[in-house]
Amino acid sequence: MAARSVLVTGCNRGLGLELARQLLGRARVFAACRDPAAPHAQELRNLASRHPNLVLVKLDVLNPESITEAARMVEDQLNGLGLNLLINNAGVYSKVTLETVDSEEMVHAYKTNLVGPLLTAKAFLPLLKKAAQGSPEKGMSCRKAAVVNISTVLASLEKSPETFYKPVISYRCSKAALNMLTRCQMLSYREDGILCAAIHPGWVKTDMGTQEADLTVDESVRGILTVLSALSEKHNGSFLNWLGKPIPW
């Protein structure tokens, strides 16, 4: 994508880890997760030990202070430059139905899948603006400045009848709200030259997607990065899948 710098949340495993891995040859990568020192982040630490352009960032999307501190740390690392791309990937998924979901589960999903990306984009907005202002690029692109929210086809209101074989109520509702956030960000940030989009990564073989899924993480991420490299002003505020095909809201 030729972006100078990218920050990805939820990098300790699955899609986030693979995004960090495949972005390494294209940009300076800030790989964020709740606790980079934890045992479940060992693979991420191993990757960072081999690649000096991969910087580990402690960022808990449930903790506003952690998000603010992460933004300060990244700003120091960028040394006066802006952040070209923020990928809000961290999320939670629970197999709850209308019969089994409770308020605690619903609030947790909204805090992680919606409020976390909202506060993260807000904290990194000054760096995104700086990247947009300092870029020689015309129009909009992920090389200039962009916020990409990892969403899901399960958040599509129009497609819900055909996808409801997986009720996953808290996941659906919180990701549908994330889609609305994406549209609001598009309307708010476009004057600053910041592109905003929501991306469905497909049904991926991860802890979240299970091994019954259609896509490997490698296939999904290759598709996502191809889509991101082609995004332009006409895609601002769009909802696309990993192949670049539009998904109805």
Score class of each variant (00 low, 15 high):
Pro161Trp: 12
Ala132Asn: 12
Phe164Arg: 07
Ala176Pro: 11
Glu158Ile: 09
Lys138Val: 12
Gly193Cys: 10
Asp207Tyr: 05
Phe124Lys: 08
Asp192Trp: 12
Leu157Met: 14
Lys130His: 13
Lys159Ile: 03
Lys129Ala: 11
Arg183Trp: 11
Ala155Val: 01
Ala230His: 11
Lys129Glu: 14
Leu178Arg: 07
Leu128Cys: 06
Thr182Arg: 10
Tyr165Pro: 01
Thr163Cys: 03
Ser170Asn: 10
Cys173Glu: 15
His200Phe: 01
Tyr165Phe: 13
Ser156Asp: 02
Thr226Arg: 14
Glu191Arg: 13
Glu191Trp: 01
Met180Gly: 07
Asp214Ile: 10
Ser238Glu: 09
His200Ala: 01
Ala177His: 11
Ala132Lys: 09
Glu219Trp: 03
Thr163Asp: 01
Val227Met: 01
Ile224Cys: 09
Ser160Thr: 11
Thr163Gly: 04
Asn236Lys: 02
Trp203Leu: 04
Ser160Ala: 15
Thr210Ser: 15
Leu195His: 08
Ser188Thr: 13
Arg172Ile: 12
Lys234Val: 10
Ala123Tyr: 02
Val148Phe: 02
Arg183Asp: 03
Ser220Val: 06
Val148Lys: 04
Glu233Ser: 15
Trp203Ser: 13
Glu158Gln: 11
Met208Pro: 06
Met208Glu: 05
Ala176Ser: 14
Gly193Glu: 02
Leu128Tyr: 07
Gly209Cys: 10
Met140Trp: 02
Ser232Gly: 15
Arg172Met: 05
Ser232Met: 05
Thr226Tyr: 04
Ser141Ala: 11
Leu181Thr: 09
Lys166Arg: 14
Ala176Leu: 05
Leu215Gly: 13
Asp192Lys: 11
Trp203Met: 05
Leu231Asp: 02
Leu128Phe: 09
Thr182Lys: 07
Leu178Val: 11
Met186Phe: 07
Met186Gln: 12
Lys129Trp: 06
Ala230Gln: 15
Leu228Met: 07
Ser220Glu: 06
Ala213Cys: 07
Ala213Gln: 05
Ser220Gln: 06
Cys184Ile: 12
Tyr165His: 15
Ser238Lys: 01
Ser156Leu: 00
Thr163Pro: 02
Cys142Gly: 08
Leu178Ile: 13
Gly223Met: 07
Leu157Tyr: 07
His235Glu: 06
Thr216Trp: 08
Asp218Thr: 12
Cys196Trp: 00
Ala230Cys: 12
Ala176Thr: 09
Arg222Tyr: 02
Phe124Ala: 06
Val204Tyr: 06
Pro167Glu: 13
Leu187His: 12
Ser188Glu: 15
Met140Gln: 03
Leu125Asn: 12
Ser141Glu: 08
Cys142Thr: 15
Ala131Cys: 09
Ser232Phe: 01
Leu231Met: 10
Ala213His: 10
Lys130Gln: 14
Ser151Met: 00
Leu125His: 14
Ala198Arg: 01
Lys129Gln: 14
Thr226Trp: 08
Lys159Glu: 10
Ala177Arg: 07
Pro161Asp: 06
Ser188Asp: 15
Leu154Met: 14
Leu128Thr: 00
Arg183Lys: 13
Met140Ile: 13
Leu215Lys: 09
Thr210Lys: 09
Ile224Thr: 00
Gly139Ser: 08
Glu162Gln: 14
Leu157Phe: 11
Ala145Gly: 09
